[in-house]
Design a protein around this nucleic acid. Structure first.
Lengths: 205, 205
DNA sequence: TGCGGGATGGTACTTTGGTGCAATAGATTG
DNA sequence: CAATCTATTGCACCAAAGTACCATCCCGCA
């Protein structure tokens, strides 16, 4: 999976380099075409005042190619615009390296990444229709009981990563991943990674 | 897990008996209280013209006790009413035994059961907001590629059931469950049961 | 009537997931 | 400072998941 960072100016943030060491920069204003022929994620930076449509015209992506919008000031409008344009996700430009790694993993597996807080607002209406308690307790709840590291592991497992993959992502041993998972299962009263996934994704109590 | 069927008349359907052989009947018009002290699912039948609120006043349920509405003529209103009243699900009175078994499994694990087609309508607006292709291709797609038996296994696995549990539910060997799963993974291009769960639950491509 | 696919399952095997016990190290806190 | 918590990892072990190969039975269809 190759990573391209597309920015109006030549300015790679340290967090990007840490998360995606092998990423290459494409410096341009408006995207007219993209490198082809291989699996890739195109990280498109959206600076203050820029709109998705202004820098990101409709482009045909090949299978295994995905676009993620890095917004300096993310909001609901940008999220919906991004998705409508065919992007696989939208997150904060200044997100931590670990978050960016998670985004990459989710996206390259065909998922959508919208970010917890943004997602809450976007699907708020659906939650209301379903008559469920608000997302604040529902979705956030699980992570509040965990340490930061445990939550990171839980998130990765929840989107389908194997222990080996989680270990590589977080630069730790597979044994450590297992240790964290055991702690997570214990704290949340779960049986295995599948139930964890359902819990994290809001599909069970 | 004990099963109580609550109906205005004394008329157990054959499909109920097949799905829940040990179920007991409670014959009454309006529910005023429920047997206490053990884990149970209360299946409340809603006949033509009856509304949820008319037979199902607000009742405090204990932990491990769940209510499922069996609607003769299910629609969106009944679904939302049921959930608002604290029920864990709503399905067709005349659903097949296998479906009822699945409902029981989902519900007793703390899940909500709403049924594919009803769920589609209820969360339709959210899908629109998210700018995704309609649920018809998105969610149904996976099952269309599978045989009926394979789809049953997939559904149970997707809500967190182990191979052993699936085997018991469908009255087959654990070995056969594995055989079906291998076929499912092959047909859908998946790696393991977690990815299957994400696929079935519409959380990945 | 033979062929293919689905459902079922037996034996055996490899891989992955998860636990128990124990150790080290840093950070925090009373 | 001692106690506690978190992160990290090793080693051993067991259980669950998944695969490979094969067999039987049934059913629809050319």
């Amino acid at each position: 999976m190759r990573h391209w960072i597309i920015d109006r100016e030549v300015a790679l943030l340290p967090s990007w380099l840490e998360a995606l060491p092998q990423a290459k920069l494409i410096q341009r204003d408006v995207i007219v075409d993209l490198p082809r022929g291989e699996q890739a994620i195109y990280w498109c930076r959206l600076r203050h005042g820029e709109t998705v449509s202004s820098i990101f015209p409709p482009i045909q992506l090949e299978a295994g190619q995905f676009v993620v919008v890095l917004a300096d000031e993310p909001d609901e409008t940008i999220v919906t615009e991004s998705l409508a344009s065919g992007a696989s996700g939208c997150c904060n430009t200044y997100a931590a390296p670990d978050v960016l790694k998670q985004v990459a993993l989710v996206v390259q597996n065909g998922g959508l990444w919208i970010g917890q807080s943004l997602l809450q607002r976007v699907i708020g209406s659906a939650a209301a229709i379903l008559g469920r308690r608000p997302q604040d307790q529902e979705i956030e709840n699980w992570s509040s009981q965990l340490s930061e590291r445990e939550a990171q592991v839980a998130r990765l497992v929840a989107v389908g990563a194997s222990n080996k993959e989680v270990a590589r992502q977080l630069s730790i041993t597979e044994r450590t991943v297992k240790a964290h998972l055991t702690a997570v299962f214990e704290k949340l009263g779960l049986r295995d990674r599948l139930q964890l996934s359902l819990r994290v994704n809001g599909l069970s109590t």
